[in-house]
Design a protein around this nucleic acid. Structure first.
Lengths: 136, 136
DNA sequence: CACATGAATGTTATGACATTACATCTGATT
DNA sequence: AATCAGATGTAATGTCATAACATTCATGTG
């Protein structure tokens, strides 16, 4: 458990929506799912998402403009996380790799580049969906 | 020189716009720069970009919704390319790393994931811009 | 208590990025 | 000439994200 402030109502609702979902959600999908809870405007979602990302509870998937709840909400703090995103079923696997991290870190320091955010996303088909495609 | 069909007028114009630019351009910025050449609608740009990406002459930077001309237009064919993107000056460095590629490849085959496109993007500040920030 | 302060929220409008749908043109082939 | 595929032109629409401004709420300080 890393220390972070109590979540506000909006933040809790957004996080719960992502937790309940079986895959990544767009901000507007989250908005639709929270209409009954009083959400009216995109900004309510984006503001909550921003904080949740700061707390490490939510990740943004840059390549598909969507958001997922962190798979390791109790041990967050990884500097670098990679995602495998299934384009068929929406499943997202989150993993980190020290060697990749070290290698990119070496490139970065060799070039005196100051990284702020690193994105590693592999889009394709998960084992189940790739298998289905083969049999078809 | 890898074999690819002759570029059409629109494709040439878009590629030239990206080549002349000193950094990544959004599709709408490209559109604006090609108004005098008869471009009127976003789709003209997006269609050209799609083909240019197929030919390996242009890359899309997922994390900033922009496009760059490939830095190695004569030896393209890399399966996996990483980008370091300076958020201050817009400079983009393109590189590939066999170890990173191998490591991600191992994860992927261990999980029987079939990758279609891999994105590796490091956003931050390049040496020059980070240096300026320090001195400020 | 009164009041200042900072954070979060609510709401409207707008900006930025991308695609659908449909019509037209062009060049190569038969 | 008829046909066909690929490229193009155009309008409309869809999707993602933020700016600007007003309001509310909790908290701490004089």
């Amino acid at each position: 458990m890393t220390a972070h402030p109590e979540l506000t109502r909006n933040q809790s609702l957004v996080l719960r929506a992502l937790d309940k979902a079986d895959g990544p959600l767009s901000a507007y999908t989250i908005l639709d799912r929270l209409r009954d809870d009083g959400f009216r405007a995109p900004l309510q979602v984006y503001r909550a998402l921003e904080k949740l990302q700061e707390f490490g509870l939510v990740h943004r998937l840059e390549s598909i403009n969507a958001f997922v709840a962190c798979a390791h909400p109790n041990c967050h703090g990884h500097a670098m996380i990679a995602f495998a995103i299934c384009q068929t079923c929406g499943r997202v696997d989150e993993f980190s790799d020290e060697v990749v991290e070290e290698r990119l870190g070496k490139w970065v320091s060799a070039h005196r580049f100051k990284p702020e955010k690193t994105t590693i996303e592999i889009r394709g088909n998960c084992a189940a969906c790739a298998g289905l495609a083969e049999r078809a």
